[in-house]
């Protein structure tokens, strides 16, 4: 088989124009699916699911806290891998995805920390404690902030992209630390409810809406990533003829 033939899909995938045109068609479906999943999951989790025997209704914060944390961590891998692909293959689109992933990841990490703090008050008795899980999550937030900040310290896009990719890759060390922090250190934070192997330590009636929320948050993440990436493409490909054509063909907005 021809080597070039095998890689054409890869480079086509890396074309901002192809991405922009494809996602145009996906967006409405993704938006509807995201909204449906999040509304279903929230109504189910907040109003229908039973409360926890010990924690009562405050346990319902899990339906925001766990999905936000899970996707914030997965989003870091997406950002770092995009950065690595950009560094190695010099694909512009993957740098654009890396940049787009940073604000979304930061926002989700922030949600995880804030909902965790609010949940901590009625259950543990404190909003904040410097335990390994919470501190490593705070470091994740700073890493995301670092990648965002790097874009503003450079006038040169290419240099900013490379620096952002390097920082994302260095920070990747933190992600497994967050996962394992509850096992490695004496933490106030309880171990994971959802396990890689074995059944979740949660009643099925409570677990089902959590699954819906996690899928909903992944769906939301893809939606936000596509929206940010499309804006980024227009901002950086302003000289491309297809972009000019796209803008001049737009119906005038009033």
């Amino acid at each position: 088989m021809n080597f070039n033939l095998q890689w054409t899909w890869f480079h086509r995938l890396g074309s901002p124009r192809w991405f922009y045109q494809q996602t145009q068609r996906w967006l409405p479906w993704l938006a509807v699916a995201t909204l449906a999943l999040l509304v279903t999951g929230l109504v189910w989790g907040l109003a229908i699911a039973p409360p926890d025997a010990k924690q009562g209704n405050s346990f319902r914060i899990i339906y925001l806290h766990v999905p936000a944390s899970v996707v914030a961590l997965a989003g870091y891998y997406i950002m770092a891998i995009s950065g690595a692909v950009g560094l190695i293959w010099r694909i512009k689109l993957s740098f654009m995805l890396m940049r787009s992933a940073a604000p979304i990841g930061a926002a989700l990490t922030f949600i995880a920390l804030v909902t965790g703090a609010i949940w901590g008050k009625p259950t543990w008795g404190t909003y904040w404690v410097w335990d390994a899980r919470i501190t490593s999550m705070l470091i994740l937030l700073f890493l995301y902030f670092g990648v965002i900040a790097l874009r503003h310290t450079y006038s040169n896009n290419e240099a900013a992209d490379k620096a952002g990719a390097v920082l994302s890759l260095v920070g990747m060390v933190n992600v497994p630390i967050i996962y394992k922090s509850v096992d490695w250190w004496q933490t106030l934070h309880q171990p994971a409810t959802i396990k890689f192997t074995g059944a979740p330590s949660m009643h099925p009636d409570m677990f089902a809406p959590l699954v819906v929320m996690i899928i909903g948050f992944y769906s939301f993440y893809s939606l936000a990533l596509i929206l940010f990436a499309r804006a980024e493409i227009l901002r950086r490909e302003y000289r491309a003829s297809w972009v000019k054509q796209l803008v001049s063909n737009q119906p005038a907005e009033k």
Binding site: N57, S58, L64, A107, I111, V114, T115, I118, W119, A224
Partner: peptide, 22 residues
């Protein structure tokens, strides 16, 4: 929510505002 409403709903409101912003 038996007194826990303030915690649950404020978490919900903060998350909703941030996600709409995104």
């Amino acid at each position: 929510m038996n007194g826990h409403g303030i915690y649950v709903w404020s978490s919900f409101a903060i998350s909703a505002v941030i996600m709409i912003g995104l």
